[in-house]
């Protein structure tokens, strides 16, 4: 892929805080118009990575190009064409929705009438129009994040960076949020977000899994699912905990993950796995209702990749 088609390109990007390596040699390529999700557990280095590529934090080493600008050499160059929504609340609580948006419009020197038009349109779309005069501090968490998104989009950015945008956000606001995000690629906007949620990951076109500052896997959500080693069986049993105990010790079982009243049992490839599981449950005296092979979920893939990655590390 040539450099012009890339919205974000990082090479060996690293940042450490004392002893902890928060981001450890991350190299990623994100094409223009992508919706890219960085998925990982808490403390994996997601927020630090987002801050590094948005120029809000200085990297220790490595390269980062955003929209063709070198963020490491000149963090200011790209800011006019970039939108960034931090994980922590970053608006002014004592200013109204409109005042916050207008302030952001001024910071990016956007034409006033265009800010006015976008503001109306986006507030309408997010069902916030009637709260426009309300102080942001008096809004719910979801509403605050939607205002944050409008502010991050007010400069019509080429690259939009969202750091866990929907963490702690109610489902309805989340839906509004994604309604806006999914429109962006067709306008040529590249969205880079990070999230600990798998359902959100499933909405992305490309994913990268990060743990302990390192990228463990990359690909489309479909490709990620296929990365799961072996087969995943869904086991429904009366006594899920007893079943879990009985299966954990089997040599052919890689991992047992509880999933509501069922177990996801990841086993070595092959037909005999099902009979082996059935036999083990029988010996333990657990009545199994149903065992069937299933398409691995993103969460399965995630768990598998992270545990394997950690074992290597």
């Amino acid at each position: 892929m040539s450099g012009d088609d890339l919205a974000v390109r990082t090479e060996d990007l690293s940042k450490r805080f004392g002893e902890t390596v928060a981001v450890d040699g991350v190299s990623l390529e994100i094409p223009v118009g992508d919706v890219f999700g960085l998925i990982g557990p808490d403390g994996a280095g997601k927020t630090t990575f987002m801050r590094l590529i948005s120029g809000v934090m200085r990297a220790d080493s490595g390269q980062a190009m955003i929209a063709g600008e070198d963020v490491i050499a000149d963090p200011e160059a790209v800011k006019q064409r970039m939108g960034y929504l931090s994980q922590a609340f970053s608006l002014y609580a004592d200013l109204s929705i409109e005042e916050n948006i207008d302030f952001c419009g001024d910071l990016y020197l956007m034409p006033r009438d265009e800010v006015q038009r976008m503001k109306e349109e986006m507030l309408e779309l997010t069902d916030l129009l009637r709260f426009r005069k309300r102080l942001v501090g008096r809004l719910s968490g979801g509403m605050k994040q939607k205002v944050g998104l409008i502010c991050a989009l007010i400069n019509r950015p080429q690259v939009l960076i969202l750091d866990e945008p929907t963490t702690g956000v109610d489902p309805i606001s989340r839906r509004d949020f994604w309604r806006i995000i999914s429109q962006l690629p067709e306008q040529g906007v590249t969205v880079v977000l990070c999230s600990p949620y798998m359902d959100e990951a499933a909405r992305c076109r490309h994913l990268a899994m990060i743990s302990r500052g390192r990228i463990l896997a990359e690909g489309t959500p479909e490709e990620m699912r296929q990365k799961v080693a072996g087969t995943v069986l869904e086991v429904t049993a009366d006594d899920v905990r007893a079943a879990s105990r009985a299966l954990s010790d089997l040599s052919s079982v890689r991992r047992v993950t509880p999933f509501g009243d069922a177990l996801h049992v990841q086993v070595e490839e092959g037909r005999e796995a099902v009979s082996e599981v059935r036999r083990a449950l029988g010996e333990a005296g657990v009545d199994e209702d149903e065992i069937h092979e299933m398409v691995p979920s993103l969460e399965d893939a995630f768990m598998d990749i992270v545990t394997r990655g950690d074992r290597v590390a």
Binding site: R51, S54, G55, V56, E76, K79, Q80, M82, G83, Y84, S86, A88, F89, S90, L91, Y92, A93, C104, L107, Y108, L109, C151
Partner: peptide, 14 residues
């Protein structure tokens, strides 16, 4: 302290 610094830091304000 209030987090709005990130909004300023990501903007082109000098």
């Amino acid at each position: 302290e209030r987090g709005s610094f990130e909004l300023l830091a990501a903007s082109p304000v000098s």
